[in-house]
Design a protein around this nucleic acid. Sequence first.
DNA 1: GGGAATGCGTTTTTT
DNA 2: ACGCATTCCC
Length: 684
Amino acid sequence: MAQPSSKSPANDSRIDFEGELNAEQYSAVTSLEGPHLVIAGAGSGKTRTLVYRVAHLVLQGVHPESILLLTFTRRSAQEMLRRAVGLLDERCHRVSGGTFHSFANITLRRYADRLGYSNSFTIIDRADCVDMIGILRTEGGYERQGRRFPRAETLLNLFSKEINTHRPLEELLEADYGQFVDDLEAIRELRKSYAERKREHNVMDYDDLLVNLRDLLAEHPVARRQLTSTYRYIMIDEYQDTNRLQAHIGALLAASHRNIMVVGDDAQSIYGFRGANFRNIIDFPQIFEGCETLLLEQNYRSTQPILDLSNAVLEKAREKYTKRLFTKLEGDEKPVLLRTTDEYTQAEYICEKVLALREEGVSLQDIAVLCRAAWHTNSLELELNNRNIPFKKFGGIKFVEAAHIKDVCALLKIGVNPLDAAAWFRILQFFEGIGPKTARGLADGVVADGGALGSLVAPKVAKRKYGADLASLKGLLDKISKPRQPLVERLDTTLETYQLWMPKKFDDTPRRVRDLEALAVIAERYSELEEFLTDLAIDPPDFSRPAAVSGADNEDEWMTLSTVHSAKGLEWNTVFLVQMNMGRFPGYNSLQDADDYEEERRLLYVAVTRAKRRLYLIKPEEQKGRGGYFEVAELSPLISEIDRLNQLVDDETYAPAPEEDDWQGDGSTAASADQLKRIQDYFG
DNA sequence: GGGAATGCGTTTTTT
DNA sequence: ACGCATTCCC
């Protein structure tokens, strides 16, 4: 389809825009100048609209480089541009696209000096931030005399929320952590030293990327002029999940030319916990006067019964949303509300159903199991493994957050920079006999020696039970710290040694080794460690584990297990929604606050609108309660409060056939009883 | 007595 | 997988 890229005239007719889009989509695609707000319901062809608009802009003679497409994940940006290339031609690959964070990363490298950073700044992930705050917290002696002081993680949450929601620290403390109101001053102090420490180390966390980009645009007119003349057409996807800071950045980018189109769905805002506010959508016309608003309400994804349920989910919302979905798709299969005895029968049912669907010719690729929290599918994963049904899991603990991946990264960091105290602190505790205190001492020793490793094998240390481990650590670091080694070579050497250490520490070494192999594959694309780590932080691989089980023949066919959050924007023929119980979905912790509860409702809306033809809401009648033992579970209030529920879903119960007792009545029972008695007589 | 290991209970969601 | 509390070891 990609044709030799001869310059096409503006009236190129290879694409029949009018025929391939509905009236609203067409209008969004062909409006060029000025501010536009597109409110696009679930499955209304939002992505299609953006893809066609990119193609249309390019056909109109707009330079691809001057189009900026900001999306929620880098993957969705790539996917859109890939589709635009398919629709038009290679020029669409030159469109600038990515997440706010990746765009900030690229931009800030160019302007780092104006903000007082060097352009080789590194990006630290959440765990690194927590470590850094933890160290400052100890250093500052904040935890005096048994007085409770917020944990490092709590502090990070506070700082981050303050930045992303633009609410003062004081107010946040009062709202969520009343017990620490007295510590306000100390917390402010710590916030300041955290900011300073990051500057000293030339690192930025996720929030710094956004704050610095905003400051660059707001306070450096020259940079702003350069950027706004480079990016002439701004498009922002998933606008309902942007926070105040991101909205500000978007507005500043479009300040001079006002060519900005934001696309989103207020009913699908599910990142409030991260500071996102769907009011950004509602308020957009206030910021950009004369903004044209377009509404995409026709759904091209789901059958009417699924949409009926989706609309019903929103009906009880405290706040009305801007639209209501309809479809022309045929189909009369109602969603099923399926009751199983417990979590295990839930897993069993899904497996049986999946196998049956596969018999009918439904590919595993068309099936997804969605959950509120990643651990909700734990027992299902076991059952799928038992039955050799291949799956991939998305969401939850990420690949890059796993202990073994972090260990290897720490080793690589030290190889390149032996003064990286945080990396030392981490890797030293890998070894038996070394805890926080010893690690601290050893790390300080190396840093004090200017990065020389001699202190690791000093006689005093060598005598300890971890002496040999440290010698082996030094051996590895000596090898990988030689300059001018390609990253892959350093990584290979590291993995070789690390794998020898693993069995002493982990029960499941083989699985972890597979993760490390995946890491090695990713690393092949990079030559610089810094670049590799930056990309891992900004655009982490989003699967938690490589596809589980099964023969190599199945490797390209697997079903999806995913958190609802990670399922955003995706769709499947058949969707199972698990654990539809009070306490699970919604979780207990969202019952206190009405806003949190409303977000759970939108989350359920996102979940049900992922399904094209078949939807199963599964409700175990018992679940593990607080004591760890099974208790009767209530149906999720998000479901039970729906009016005329029984008209919208088929209410079914799954009763697995009881296991047949082959032994009964054939005489062998008696024989085995006799045998048991003899065994007991012998062994006592 | 300091520091590490072990065991237990609990588990949002993520750039 | 992690925090927290208790137990164990040097």
